[in-house]
Nucleic acid binder design. Structure first.
Lengths: 351, 351
DNA sequence: CATCGACCTCGAATCGATTCGAGGGCTGCG
DNA sequence: CGCAGCCCTCGAATCGATTCGAGGTCGATG
């Protein structure tokens, strides 16, 4: 009599003296079931300790799992360290709120182990691709084959995939123009990675041409719109650490030192400033630093001059686009605008 | 001939001229399949654009979904704002790495909408309960009924649920003793919420006795071990905002002003310091502030005196406990030790 | 009193893949 | 040439719930 395994709907139905189908109706509430029957079923369920329908079976039958995947380009731990990502996640949950869907964190870093839940085998109803992922192309292909509706934040995903983006090129150009107006002519860049390998080092034409990272390329183009000859370093990620390394490389030689550095993220900018501090270079006295994102950087003493992007709004728009897709509509792409915030890390060059 | 719906394994099998079972073997790799057959199947799959087995069907059949739930006590957005939570999540992914499981973010805030994926209906193989959740009891009951293995970080979950914790009481006592040794006698407290309603306001015996939040109670007890008469304010959450409000309340009256405040989290401590700044009270000159957590607080100019807890290690231990549970073992509870870090927010009282 | 209709309840098919035991064909040896 | 044995493939059952159409029962009305 005592079932050792967990009870199923059939067990409950049997105990209540009704058929499985009726029990199902009683639970889901859809369909006409008499009050008495419903009570019987619920009572039987309570007696057996039935915890409700198995979500696995439900999702097979219904064809929906109620889970939305969030694909991060990095290891989860790395994404958590990036305030921009967190803000976007925050926005995504807001945008998805009406669905009541769970958020499954996925990463895009190649094939995982055999039984791992990766982008190619996650029980998700839709997916939000977050971040300027160099591997985006491959991810999109997998999702297309699986028929999973997707939304991309930053990064062109091709036909039918709504894209939530910002004016990377325009914004950077505005920032660069501001530097030029201040009088800067010798400007160096610290960019986000261009390829899937996250190659770190000098910014070379090879890397630029082989770029698979739209965001990095766009921001680069914006800077080049104003400073066509500008070159610099490619960071391996958006982090203070990487910015520090790039900053050291750019500032090491006192005879070839730029008067300003355009970093493609605030964290990189913070790293550059840290490098300047190490080398005794005054910011903004001897070096102006421009960031991108508009986050508050932990431990940074400066009010960074930066391009403030609406990260939360981006996430929210992505979440809403998912809702729309699952409702069968075809949401449009959205492009947000960034705003130049002038802080205390930029000034006229000392010459 | 052209299937409009996505192909299934049977379609592939039919196209390859084999049975569905053989096709399954060919895909999963388990079981003896001749090379030629395997090739045929893979070729057919490629032609049909078959994207691999449906994870929903797999998880039904296998009884495992490859997903581990992380239950946060707050809205996801709130958790993302708490650096301690992020560090723990980080640790959890590390600990779970060997499983290759996906991480599903869940919240514990009452019943969600009808079709929402909540703790009572998420397709997860195991769950990590994160944070000192006042609703923990109810969550545990649901999970027990569902037969989902669980691990709790901070918060007693009862029989058979491994608990990952720190020495909340001991640590707070050590911090309090340090304050007493400095000469403080008039100490006020700012605590985390005690109940599910997150009641905010004066710290009353009623609230203390009705506590469902073990962490808050333990830290309170540690403080009382040294300052039995200490009282103070209960915050509605761990945030700078809440700390600010509590700090204002505690410091408003110049005639009854404590010489030190023990906050139950660094964010609360940062808020208290902000309140002191507003009121022109020097820290640590006129007011000493003790925190808990050991995170770097964004924008805080001080080196906070605090009890540093190993957040990442806690998460990692929880992840490893989940792996162990799923392997059929019975992992033991773990209790980590916090370390008092003396920064520049504590000093001897001015008189 | 008989028949029609409304309201419930039930059976059976289905979602897509996995798995185990059985059977069939081929090879090699006696 | 015949038979044993092995390797591969197949059928069928199963995971647990949902859903649609059919059938049954009871009440109401002519």
């Amino acid at each position: 009599m005592t079932e050792s395994a967990r009870p199923t709907l059939s067990d409950v139905a049997a105990r209540a003296g009704v058929s499985a189908s009726t029990a199902s109706l009683a639970f889901s509430g859809s369909g006409p079931v008499s009050g008495a029957t419903k009570q019987k079923v619920l009572a039987a369920a309570a007696e057996l300790g039935y915890a409700g329908p198995d979500p696995r079976a439900q999702s097979l039958r219904r064809g929906r799992s109620g889970i939305v995947g969030v694909v991060l380009e990095e290891r989860v731990r790395a994404a958590f360290l990036d305030p921009v990502k967190i803000q976007m996640l925050d926005g995504i949950t807001e945008g998805l709120a009406s669905l009541g869907a769970g958020l499954l964190l996925l990463t895009d870093t190649g094939e995982a182990g055999g039984n791992a839940v990766g982008i190619e085998s996650a029980p998700v109803d839709a997916v939000v691709l977050v971040g300027c992922s160099p591997r985006l192309g491959q991810s999109v292909e997998v999702l297309r084959r699986r028929g999973i509706p997707s939304v991309a934040i930053e990064g062109d995903a091709g036909d039918g995939i709504p894209k939530i983006s910002i004016d990377n090129r325009e914004a950077t150009r505005r920032g660069a123009e501001y530097l030029r107006e201040l009088g800067h002519a010798d400007v160096a860049l610290v960019t986000l990675p261009f390829d899937a390998a996250r190659t770190r080092g000098p910014l070379t034409p090879d890397l630029e041409l082989g770029s698979t990272a739209e965001t990095a390329s766009e921001r680069l183009a914006g800077a080049r719109d104003v400073f066509p000859e500008a070159t610099g370093r490619v960071a391996g990620a958006s982090s203070i650490e990487e910015g520090l390394e790039a900053g050291r490389a750019l500032l090491a030689d006192p005879s070839h030192r730029p008067t300003a550095i355009i970093a493609q993220s605030d964290l990189l900018a913070a790293g550059v400033i840290q490098a300047a501090d190490e080398l005794g270079i005054a910011v903004p006295g001897e070096l102006s630093v421009l960031g991108f994102d508009g986050i508050r950087v932990d431990g940074l003493q400066h009010d960074l001059t930066t391009l403030v992007q609406p990260s939360v709004a981006k996430g929210r728009a992505a979440g809403e686009a998912v809702v729309s897709l699952l409702a069968g509509d075809s949401p449009r792409s959205v492009c947000f605008t960034s705003v130049l915030h002038v802080g205390d890390t930029t000034a006229a060059p000392s010459r």
